[in-house]
Design a protein around this nucleic acid. Structure first.
Lengths: 227, 227
DNA sequence: TCAATAGTGTCTGTTAGACATTATGGA
DNA sequence: TCCATAATGTCTAACAGACACTATTGA
C-alpha cells in the first residue's frame, strides 16, 4: 500500500512533544522508579525525557531513549499516556508521551539517575507525576495478562520470589496456595530441575517463564487477595 | 502552584498532532461508527478529525470537537491511543490522538457523516483503522467498570435491552440469569415503577443507571459468557 | 532438636452456568 | 388457547480462600 505524498512531507517534522521514560524496578524489597534526583538548582526530581524528534518512528524513538539510558531495550515497555492540558513539564513541549517500562531488579542506574522510592513521586513536575500515577496503574492492571513481574526477576526464580514481586507491584499481599493454583491454571511457568537454598528452610525449586506456544485463550493470573 | 514561565511560552504552540473522534453508537441491532462515507474523490471512508491547535487544553479541544459535531459533549468519552510511526492519516500530522466516545442509539449523524458498520473499518486510513481497533478494544475492556453500555440507551431501559447492548458491544452472547446476578452484585441499576410492553410476552420492568453514592469498592460487572 | 521456609492436600462457602418453572401479557 | 418474553428458583461443578500438614534444609 502506497503512502500518499503529502503524508511524507511532514512526517518527519518536529512534533512539539516529549518522550518521558517511566522505568520501574525493585531494590531491597521496594518498588523503585528511575529519576533524576532533586538537585540544588531546580530542586525537583524529574523523570528522564527527551524531545520527540521524528513522529515517523515514535515507538522506535521511545525504544532508543530507553536503550540509550539502560544499555538495551527493556523487555517490557509500553505507551501508557499522552498528557498535555497545560500541566507543568520540564520540557517546553505542550504534549508528553509517557512510556512505562520495567527492568530487572538490581539493574544499576545510569549516570546522573537514581532509583527513587515511590514516595518521591509526589515531588515530580505535575505532568510527570500524573504520568507516573497512570503508568503504575496501567502496570498493575496489565500484570495479570502480561509478563511484567517476570521482567523484574532473573530468568530462573522461585515461586516465592515471583509472588513477592507480584505483591510488590500490586501493593497487596496474595494468598500462597491460590497464587500457585492461578499460575498452574494460566500455565505460564515451567519448573527447572534446579533448586535454590537461601538461609534456613527447605530449598525452593526454580522456575522459568514459559508461556504456551499454542496461543489458545490465555487465562489471566487471577489474584486472590489476602484477607 | 505557579507554572514556570518557559512552559507558558510554547504551551499554545501548534503541536503537529491531530485529534481523531471515534464515536460509537448502535442502529438496528448493529454497532456503528461515525465516519465520513467513502466519497468519489478520495475513495476512502474517514473518521472525523481536526488539527490539535492548543495542547494546553487537549481534553477541552477533544470535547469541543465532539460537541461541535454532535451538539453536545458525549456522556462517555476518553483518550484511547496516541499513534504516529509514519502510518497514513488524512491530516499531515505526524501524531494523532484518538478519542473514543459513545452516544445514544438513534442519535442522528451530523451533516456529511454517517453511521457505518464495523466492516467499514477496514477501509479507513491505516492510522485511523489502528485507532478504531484499539478504541473498540478499550471500550470492551472498560465496560465492566464504566457505564458505557448505559450511554447508548435511554435513561430508562429494560434489563433485556441492557443485556442486548452489552452483547452488541462485546460481540458476545451473555447468560441471562448470571448477567442479572452480576448487575445485582454490582449494584448499579435501580428499578423504576414503570413497565414496558413490546409485542407479545410479559412486560418488562424499567430500570435506571444508579451507581452507589458511597464510593465503596465497586464490583465490576462480571461477564458470564454463554457456552 | 528447633526454626524457618517450600510445597501440597483437604475442606467449605460462594458462585458461574445450566436448567426448569412461574408470571404475564398479546395473538 | 397458545405463544413469547420476563423474571425467578434450584441444582451442580468449579473454585477462591482458608487451614493444616508434610518435606527439607540450616542453626
Amino acid at each position: 500500500m502506497r503512502r500518499p505524498r503529502r503524508a511524507d512531507a511532514r512526517a518527519n517534522a518536529p512534533t512539539g512533544a516529549s518522550l518521558d521514560f517511566l522505568c520501574f524496578s525493585a531494590r531491597d524489597g521496594r518498588l523503585t522508579l528511575l529519576a533524576h534526583p532533586a538537585t540544588g538548582r531546580s530542586g525537583r526530581a524529574e523523570l528522564p525525557w527527551r524531545a520527540l524528534t521524528s513522529a515517523r518512528t515514535v515507538t522506535g524513538e521511545a525504544r532508543r531513549l530507553a536503550a540509550d539510558l539502560m544499555g538495551s531495550v527493556p523487555l517490557w515497555m509500553t505507551h501508557v499516556a499522552t498528557l498535555g492540558d497545560g500541566t507543568v513539564h520540564p520540557s517546553d513541549a505542550p504534549l508528553s508521551l509517557i512510556y512505562a517500562a520495567v527492568v530487572a531488579a538490581g539493574t544499576p542506574p545510569p549516570a546522573g539517575l537514581a532509583w527513587a522510592n515511590l514516595s518521591a513521586l509526589a515531588a515530580l513536575p505535575a505532568r510527570q507525576r500524573q504520568g507516573a500515577d497512570l503508568g503504575l496503574t496501567a502496570l498493575r492492571e496489565r500484570m495479570d495478562r502480561e509478563p511484567i513481574a517476570f521482567r523484574l526477576l532473573d530468568e530462573e526464580f522461585t515461586l516465592s520470589a515471583l509472588q513477592a514481586m507480584y505483591e510488590l507491584l500490586l501493593g497487596q499481599r496474595l494468598h500462597k496456595a491460590s497464587f500457585r493454583r492461578a499460575l498452574q491454571a494460566a500455565g505460564i511457568v515451567s519448573p527447572t530441575d534446579s533448586w535454590r537454598s537461601e538461609g534456613r528452610g527447605r530449598p525452593a525449586q526454580l522456575y522459568r517463564y514459559a508461556p504456551p506456544r499454542r496461543r489458545s485463550r490465555r487465562r489471566p493470573v487471577r489474584f486472590d487477595l489476602l484477607g
